[in-house]
């Protein structure tokens, strides 16, 4: 039964889906790295991106990818505002406060969407939804490839930003050592709201990329993505961008291969089991360097 062509097919699908997981995970891990906040509304920002694309499709009727032109800057600003209004004031409160605040935010986003759009699952119908590209024996979905391309572009841009720009260095410095960063004159409060804006923008991008592929429901879909993002970041190692990418790809492959060759009804459990194993055996993550003692 282990046909090589089918195996490669599954592997390719796993990697492409893993790419999208990575994109979602990167935003979460970035925010955690800098702010030490586990953002429970992260998945809801993904869903917000999906609904943005749906709205864009309803109003203008253009391809959902074009909506990124509007969605990206808007998401960035929304993220900054949310950070300033909700997270910054409780920065010095006990750690659970920010968790709680983002949980509240998640409830608010989901139910606002429910009130505006109704509970019916929404998607955008693109003409190429079921098209495939054939490479040798392998059929690759055009939508998945597009998602992969968008992921690569976004993560590439993020790397360039973090490594090559002054502000990117400030972000890395803040993540590495907040006090040290402040000592060398970095305004870490501004960095934090900037990073939260970026995290939001990444989540929204993932949402837009995913909408031709799957469906958005106001309250349900968000929780699923949040959970996936947790798994991805812990698999790789919390707070590290590169690790989240590795974790995302790994999760995609583990899920697809598990569902292909073992019991498909336990598909989600494969990711979770991998997550637990990593937590227990290598809590710093598969791609993390040292154990972070808090």
């Amino acid at each position: 039964m282990l046909d090589l062509a089918i195996f490669i097919q599954n592997l390719a699908n796993g990697l492409l889906i893993g790419g999208v997981y990575a994109l979602i995970g990167v935003g979460l891990t970035l925010v955690f790295g800098v702010m030490r906040t586990i953002n429970f509304a992260h998945g809801d920002f993904v869903v917000l991106g999906m609904y943005g694309a749906v709205l864009f499709d309803l109003v203008f009727g253009f391809d959902p990818y074009l909506s990124l032109l509007i969605a990206l800057p808007v998401a960035f600003v929304v993220g900054m505002v949310v950070e300033r209004a909700i997270l910054a004031p409780i920065a010095d409160a006990p750690a659970e406060s920010s968790l709680l605040a983002t949980l509240g935010l998640s409830l608010i986003i989901g139910n606002l969407l429910l009130l505006t759009f109704g509970g019916e699952p929404r998607s955008v119908q693109v003409p190429y939804a079921s098209d495939t590209v054939r490479i040798g024996e392998v059929n690759l979905s055009v939508v998945l490839l597009a998602a992969g391309a968008a992921t690569t572009a976004m993560i590439g841009a993020l790397y360039w930003f973090l490594e090559r720009t002054e502000r990117g260095r400030a972000v890395r410095a803040t993540a590495e050592n907040r006090l040290g960063a402040e000592l060398v004159g970095i305004d870490t409060r501004r960095v934090q709201s900037f990073v939260f804006g970026m995290g939001t923008a990444l989540a929204v991008t993932a949402g837009v990329t995913l909408i031709p592929l799957l469906f958005a429901t106001p309250t349900f879909t968000g929780a699923i993505f949040t959970l996936k993002a947790f798994v991805v970041t812990v698999l790789g190692g919390l707070g590290r961008v590169g690790a989240a990418i590795g974790g995302g790809l790994l999760l995609g492959v583990v899920e697809v291969l598990g569902a292909s060759y073992f019991l498909s009804e336990y598909r989600d459990a494969y990711g979770l089991l991998a997550f637990l194993l990593v937590l227990l055996l290598r809590p710093e993550g598969l791609f993390g360097k040292t154990v972070k003692r808090v």
């Binding site: 949980l103 935010l105 409830l107 139910n111 606002l112 009130l115």
Partner: peptide, 10 residues
């Protein structure tokens, strides 16, 4: 109602 619940928590 669930919306208000969220606001309340915040």
């Amino acid at each position: 109602n669930l919306l208000i619940y969220g606001v309340l928590i915040l």
